[in-house]
Design a protein around this nucleic acid. Sequence first.
DNA 1: CGGCTCAGGTTAACCGCTTAATCACGCGGC
DNA 2: GCCGCGTGATTAAGCGGTTAACCTGAGCCG
Lengths: 355, 355
Amino acid sequence: MTASGEQGRVTIRQVAEHAGVSEAAVSYALNGRPGVSEQTRARVLAAARELGWAPNIAARSLGTAKANAVGMVLVRPPRVMVVDSFLTQMLSGVEAELNRNDVALVLHLVDDFAGTIDVYRRWYAGRHVDGVIMTDLRHADPRPAALREIGLPAAVIGGGDPGGDPAVDGLDLTGLSSVDADTAGTAQGIVNYLRALRHRTIFRVAGPRELLHTVQRDAAYTAAVAAAGDIEYRCVYTNYGAADGMRATRELLSLTEPPTALVFDNDVMAAASLKVAHEMGLSVPGDFSVVAWDDSDLCQITVPEITAVVQVPALQAELTARALLTAIGGGGPTRLTLPPGTLTARESTRPPRPR
Amino acid sequence: MTASGEQGRVTIRQVAEHAGVSEAAVSYALNGRPGVSEQTRARVLAAARELGWAPNIAARSLGTAKANAVGMVLVRPPRVMVVDSFLTQMLSGVEAELNRNDVALVLHLVDDFAGTIDVYRRWYAGRHVDGVIMTDLRHADPRPAALREIGLPAAVIGGGDPGGDPAVDGLDLTGLSSVDADTAGTAQGIVNYLRALRHRTIFRVAGPRELLHTVQRDAAYTAAVAAAGDIEYRCVYTNYGAADGMRATRELLSLTEPPTALVFDNDVMAAASLKVAHEMGLSVPGDFSVVAWDDSDLCQITVPEITAVVQVPALQAELTARALLTAIGGGGPTRLTLPPGTLTARESTRPPRPR
DNA sequence: CGGCTCAGGTTAACCGCTTAATCACGCGGC
DNA sequence: GCCGCGTGATTAAGCGGTTAACCTGAGCCG
């Protein structure tokens, strides 16, 4: 702290001179390794602090063959609004864990999904990162297999419920870590809630079908509806965007047998549905109820406020990062499931109008 | 591509053997440097491709004393929704430019603003990055001076209009690069637009006062209003959040002399104001008009749709990244101003009700 | 034909840190 | 009194590139 801003960074050598020991001793001392007495260790530490030394990570990486960094490749454009909020929460969670372990986060945006694997390959070959974190797993996603082939440790945020059938998902997560929310539980919660309000026709506006995320929810809803036994369920897929949400909502509400409740895979589409209701002269929750899976401020600035499920992506991401670090450290892969999201009832849900 | 997944990465040495030349020749060839014939260069390149070689960045960094990376430190939590969208757009822009130059982006989130400078210091000392990109400059922000002292090249997204008075802003941007939008022009555009609609009382719900961003807009609006000469202007500061926006809106609309138009520093607050209008039994744009500075999907899913100013943060960020790379490369600092944002008129603005 | 130049290559030092191998030395045991 | 041993240190060999300095031979000139 004292001596910064000088030309030429402080190296271990200067610390060694200053403390009157060899460079190796400094290295041992600074890394908390045996081989030096507590006394010299203290002297070295003092010297390092005094000179404002910080390890040259390039040198360290070269020596240890570890990058002390993990990478994330995102596909540009990062979809839409909500997802932005999701993204920042995830980054926040990931970083929380990485910081704790002095591991850096390298971010990379690619234009097309296909480019992702090339980046992984380069990262591996160049020892750029020690592992990667993935999100937005897709149906038949080539990344898990590629990473296994490359030999790069990886963890995935929302990787799929344990027990997800590889044959169905088109992917094999062997060897990868993953942390997922309890999709089945959440869907059940939503269905039960609406059913308790006496809704029997629940339609869903989902995300893109390619996303594993969506497919998982498909399965979860289907199961929940089947368990209830007396509910009519139906689903259309979208791209998560506001315009998509509006189109889908219009379509579903125009059916001869319209639903009494609409559930959305994100908050933006749920909010957009209110505009459609307005257009069509319908009232929410008078004519139909609305539930959003994924909460945000947005759900509270609409009229009516939207009933939503609260998830904690930051925590999920944090645990994923932890799992990755364990895997990098040689521990086996972790497979974790978080408790279901909790539903916050607001103004957009109510028993259906008796007919 | 062919030979990946083998144990032990491919080094320059193996490429050299494979091509039948020395390691140095390989280095020259791969870096497009003179010293090898076109013929051997081609042979080396072929060998490298065939073996799937990629430079070990640690080794390269150590040799060249360049990290080939730039860093961004963000303060957690990343404020709110909109800003999330801003963030992703910025990252997208930054990455676009960095990718083009094979420079990595290192992201770091800190809990308190104060920690930022320590990170910069460590990054510099450890040659972690060659430069940093800043956002959200504050009044009396300590970062520019610190970076200058440390000697780390830096560029700031939205750094302040050239001509901004250091004495006023409490900061000195000497030596730093910055790319800003034409705040003055944008404010003028908004004021002119509303004035043309015959609004004479325009109140503003602004962001946090600590942000330079907000202060710049203060100056811009004040100037625009002064130029018009016949407008009553007034401003309250918030934290950008939906709740803040609602509170501020309520406050301003409850004045004995309420405004006929409200301008907001972001889209979330503008959207939230519609809810307040609803609460108070007022109509938009019947009772007052609404303009958002910063556009997003959000402005199009509300009823009425919100008139907004479109900015291009991605471009701004991209140019900032470019400026940083130039600075790192030894070029002088760049100071750039982008054209004003363009106003998109939607349903939330209309001439005021004659009284 | 000797010597100079220059393109095309090679050798080896170095970047800063890690770590295996080595060493000095004091001490207890036989 | 000598040997073996453990402790606390040092020495030196990499890690995988970059690059200054040096070498070699062909081409050219006077």
